[in-house]
Design a protein around this nucleic acid. Structure first.
Lengths: 109, 109
DNA sequence: TCTACGTTTCAACAATCATTGAAACAATGG
DNA sequence: CCATTGTTTCAATGATTGTTGAAACGTAGA
């Protein structure tokens, strides 16, 4: 992952509704959620959700597939883990002051 | 760290110049860098840098102290590690598919 | 094929954000 | 106290982003 894409991903997560979409999709697991379900869950209009989904998709944080009439969105695990890795390595330089607590916490999560 | 603050931090990192400021400050270490030095390094005007620094400071990612005529900025390690922890735990639910690679990578960073 | 459903596209608008230059402020040295 | 250096504040502007409603598209069932 390069800086350009990392910044795009951060920008994508830096908006309340989009952040909630990602969390909902991670929680939903690989099966994902239909756009309509997401819209209800997050509390935004279908139109507006589409806008945010496109943003997240472009940032590589989610993916979609069609299933009958519905379009199912799911979290892009690789994109998310790449982002965390990039944040720890390239941005925070692997500094223990920054990274150690996160690693420690995640160990007994 | 709550969702509100995490989203603010992501938004702060989701802008090229601000992202570079954070990286420069992490690289600089606890001693930090004067605002003027940062402005030169990042390649933005002093005025514009102030705007971004305020944003980052408000997001809890950097801090400042006065030293003579200069104002020295430095990375807020705790804010950064809180963000990583939040991203792994609250957003990504500690899912191994997402978090394990990051932890593994950081181990031999 | 017609209709209904789920989703996206489009055009418009309001709101927020990034950038600029001029002016003000704070600290230091003469 | 004055001049200089480093930084911030302020007001203005252009650019980007978030939101909306109407219309279009794709799929499935009657």
């Amino acid at each position: 992952m390069d800086e350009r894409q990392a910044v795009m991903a951060f920008a994508a997560l830096g908006q309340e509704n989009r952040f909630r979409v990602v969390r909902a999709l991670v929680t939903a697991g690989p099966d994902g959620l239909a756009a309509g379900t997401l819209a209800t869950e997050i509390g935004v209009s279908a139109t507006n959700l589409t806008f945010h989904l496109k943003e997240l998709s472009h940032a590589g944080l989610i993916q979609s597939r069609r299933e009958g009439k519905s379009i199912i969105y799911s979290a892009a695990y690789e994109g998310l883990s790449d982002l965390i890795t990039f944040l720890m390595r390239d941005c925070c330089q692997g500094r223990p002051e920054v990274c150690a607590p996160a690693v420690r916490d995640s160990a007994h999560a």
